[in-house]
Design a protein around this nucleic acid. Structure first.
Lengths: 187, 187
DNA sequence: AAAGATACGGAACAGTGTTCCGTTTTCAAG
DNA sequence: CTTGAAAACGGAACACTGTTCCGTATCTTT
């Protein structure tokens, strides 16, 4: 039988890939997703060939950055919960999540480009965020009963829609999110 | 007083510009609006410098091609009217117009890009087409009374919306336009 | 410790936008 | 018609970016 596992990547390869995603995230934010490959490789401290080995197509890198940011945003929930009361944690994470969405304007159009690389990104998005938010909601439940009408997915979508404006409306978005959360316990 | 008119362009310059717009139209259709500048210049039989002199920014060339096509489509009305009965002319021109719209998918997104070069293109569009269609409608009026409910602009928009599908639906669009025109005289 | 496999870096190649400049063409004045 | 300056021309040259290649360095296993 064929029991040869895929040998795990060499540690330098792992380092490179991680550095590339970090660098790409910074550069994408700074110069958009069309930034030169050389810039990204340089900031990661690797050669361009390394970039192309790990991410043959640009979409691969974009998707990787997206996943990384989703992971970070999801992970932030734990940190916030450790330092805040449950109801505050819920609000603070939603504000964090709103900020995440607000930076994804350029990516939103890429998502609808039909590139198969992006096909299962929405699923990834939901699979990461829904449990996190469900947990925050559950914790907050004890302190201030929350209407059973809204579930985590509803809330993700609602805040997501509130956050797609941007430009001059960062504060506006924050106010709306606060309102939304305040409304949760008024049932 | 300052009565020196701007001296009109040299005839070779006029020829070049016209050839460039012709070439660009063909190449845009063939390879999209991002086709290499060299290809366009080559097909026009001029050097790239000539292209850049006449159209410093790509958007300038795109806009010029658009205007040229609008002009051609508007001018087709006269030819058609000369060979067809008024009611047939109306239908045939609308079909011609539908074909025009169908090729403008790529341009539609450019229009909404916020580039100031494209800002007054919609106005140009309307200023050319509305009188033409109004004339066709008026001529057809004598043969088969047409509902006074629809004016030229309504019809332009309606046929325009019918034509935005494309891909496999060229025949579908044609059928819908025929239906629309047939309906005009049923009041 | 040694050798094979893996990954690396940067030079090299290819394609495109944009500019520069010596040459050609036009056009109007004499 | 001649002529000469202004306008326009063509294509090479430059700049920048994506992509590939290959000799070299690093890692991993025995």
């Amino acid at each position: 039988m064929n029991n040869n596992r895929p040998p795990r990547a060499r540690i330098d390869a792992q380092r490179s890939e991680s550095a590339l995603v970090d660098a790409a995230r910074t550069i994408f934010l700074q110069s958009g997703v069309d930034a030169p490959a050389r810039d990204i490789a340089a900031r990661a401290g690797v050669g361009v060939a390394t970039l192309y080995r790990s991410f043959p197509k640009r979409a691969d890198l974009v998707a990787a950055v997206f996943r990384r940011e989703v992971d970070d945003c999801a992970a932030a929930a734990a940190d916030i919960s450790a330092e805040q009361l449950p109801v505050d944690a819920l609000l603070m994470w939603l504000l964090r999540y709103a900020r995440f969405i607000a930076t994804k304007r350029g990516l939103a159009t890429a998502l609808h480009s039909g590139d198969p690389t992006f096909e299962n990104l929405p699923e990834y998005f939901r699979s990461k965020f829904e449990p996190v938010l469900a947990g925050l909601l559950h914790n907050a439940q004890f302190a201030a009963p929350i209407s059973g009408e809204v579930d985590a997915y509803d809330l993700l979508r609602a805040v997501g829609n509130l956050s797609v404006e941007g430009e001059g409306g960062a504060q506006h978005t924050e106010r709306m999110v606060r309102l939304l959360v305040a409304g949760l316990s008024k049932g």
